[in-house]
């Protein structure tokens, strides 16, 4: 079963991260790289991406003529997707355990951030025979 693990952060999160002490930034990056490597080597990782800062994000919708109308970011949004992992595991509990590890990434002073990770199942289950 496939799950997406979504890491959200406030719009200011990217700036706050950049203002951490160097060794904390390095520790955080080392954690993320090691975590991804671990997932890859355990044969569960399908894909993982980090997203660029939401400051430049655009919201696009089609106008009546089908052409794009571009707005800035939704002003009401407080949280943004910062990155995600898609994993292929045998039980939901395994997905939750991986999410908990992601959540505990080290923050300032090496203290676990315990940030919320949204876990959603990907629609990839097999259809059963129907009568």
């Amino acid at each position: 079963m496939k799950y997406i693990l979504m890491m959200n952060c406030p719009k200011t999160g990217y700036d706050t991260f950049g203002a951490w002490p160097k060794k904390d930034i390095q520790a955080h990056i080392a954690f993320q790289l090691g975590f991804d490597k671990d997932l890859r080597e355990s044969g569960v990782l399908l894909s993982a991406e980090g997203l660029a800062s939401p400051h430049e994000a655009k919201c696009v919708r089609a106008g009546k003529d089908g052409a794009s109308i571009t707005d800035g970011v939704f002003p009401e949004a407080k949280e943004y997707l910062a990155g995600y992992w898609i994993v292929d595991v045998e039980t939901p509990e395994q997905a939750y355990a991986i999410a908990a590890r992601a959540s505990a990434a080290p923050g300032p002073g090496g203290v676990p951030m315990n940030m919320p990770i949204e876990v959603r199942q990907v629609m990839s289950g097999p259809p059963e025979d129907l009568l």
């Binding site: 629609m123 990839s124 289950g125 097999p126 259809p127 059963e128 129907l130």
Partner: peptide, 10 residues
């Protein structure tokens, strides 16, 4: 409740 897209559509 299903996690299969074709089944959901059905």
């Amino acid at each position: 409740r299903t996690t299969s897209l074709p089944e959901r559509n059905y």
